[in-house]
């Protein structure tokens, strides 16, 4: 799980262009939206694409994202359980 969390942090920094940020700067328990990383709605869509492209997970309902993107740790747990690649 720890490895997946680190991998996910790197992917998030890359895909969301979080300039100057390293995986160590991201608290795996901190909220991704609002406070925490302060991501916006376009970032949320980009995370949905990341889930599908890298892990083969298709979110049928966009509202699922609210729960899944609570933090990097929650996201990693969901990926571990549902990944198809």
């Amino acid at each position: 799980m720890k490895e997946l969390i680190e991998e996910l942090k790197t992917e998030i920094i890359d895909v969301l262009n979080l300039e100057g940020m390293t995986p160590a700067d991201i608290d795996e328990n901190a909220p991704l939206f609002g406070e925490g990383l302060g991501l916006d709605s376009i970032d949320a869509l980009e995370l949905i694409v990341l889930m599908e492209k890298n892990y083969g997970i298709k979110l049928a309902n966009a509202n699922e994202g609210k729960e899944i993107f609570k933090s990097v740790k929650v996201m990693a747990e969901y990926i571990k359980e549902h990944r198809t690649k």
Partner: peptide
Amino acid sequence: YPSPSIFV
């Protein structure tokens, strides 16, 4: 994989 952040 259409990119939302590029599309905007």
